[in-house]
Design a binder for these strands. Structure first.
Lengths: 147, 147
DNA sequence: CGGTCAGTGTCAGGAATCTGACACGCATCA
DNA sequence: TGATGCGTGTCAGATTCCTGACACTGACCG
């Protein structure tokens, strides 16, 4: 179909652009993670566990922006594949603290390299100043929206 | 569970923050659109049609970041509700140009008001300068990621 | 002590979305 | 003319993800 009537004011909307950028990032990450047999949520889970060992299923779910139920099925498969470990019984309450195995850390290493290349491409052509402003603006948006 | 070990470097990652902001925006929009019986995709479709009348199903799908199949089921329900119209036969090729009805414009008007309040809240506390930089940065990111 | 509340893990069930595939129309070019 | 490529609408199947609900634990407070 023909290209026509481009951009009335959608390209001027921060909201729309936010969605567009987020979508482009997700697509790009999916693309580089697929050869590794990973999804974005999959990778997010591993990255979260690497940075904060002992996170519970619910906490991982919030961090990866999915429901506890979805994260749970993911964790079960990760546990089955020997990538993460959870104790059989909760040390306190009902929360089961998850941890990466050696194999998990290795798996994450590959994924991190792939994702880093995407992030570098995304930030290409942006000055440190611009990145800093973008960081501040995004943080402010999140805070304001949650209010 | 207890609050602990906050922010190793997730909060410093533009990628994660992008996802977080996009998610917060979507949640906030969902919340104000639900009383109107609308979803975000629903609203996006109407907004797209208002700004660019005659868009085809596939074009709407790309604009709303869903598949043609998903957009088609939405369009069918919108057509059934008398919110949009499509000709019975394609004037050219196979693409059916969709248009808002009077009722559709009225429906959109309510939604726009609701969404505008969210966008205002999101941008609260941000200078025009910061918004301009954010706009430029996001555009650059999208362009780089698509390359 | 007894009550409520918040947070968690888990079990179905269902809704939304995507993947895969096919036929058709138009444009381009040999 | 015919052939290839691209975009589109549409059908069916499968997957993913979420909504709703239940039981349990620990913390707080009357």
């Amino acid at each position: 179909m023909k290209h026509k009537a481009e951009g009335v004011d959608l390209e001027t909307s921060l909201g729309y652009l936010l969605k567009e950028a987020s979508n482009a990032l997700r697509s790009a990450m999916d693309e580089v993670l697929r050869p590794l047999g990973m999804t974005v949520t999959h990778y997010s889970c591993l990255e979260l566990l690497a940075q904060r060992p002992g996170l519970s299923n619910s906490e991982l779910a919030r961090g990866a922006f999915v429901t506890r139920q979805s994260m749970n099925v993911l964790l079960q498969s990760l546990e089955r594949d020997g990538v993460v470990t959870r104790p059989a019984e909760a040390p306190v309450g009902k929360a089961l603290p998850a941890r990466l195995t050696a194999r998990g850390r290795q798996s994450l290493e590959q994924a991190t390299a792939a994702v880093r290349s995407v992030e570098l491409r995304m930030l290409a052509g942006l000055s440190d100043d611009e990145q800093a402003v973008a960081l501040r603006v995004l943080r402010s948006m999140v805070r304001s929206l949650r209010a």
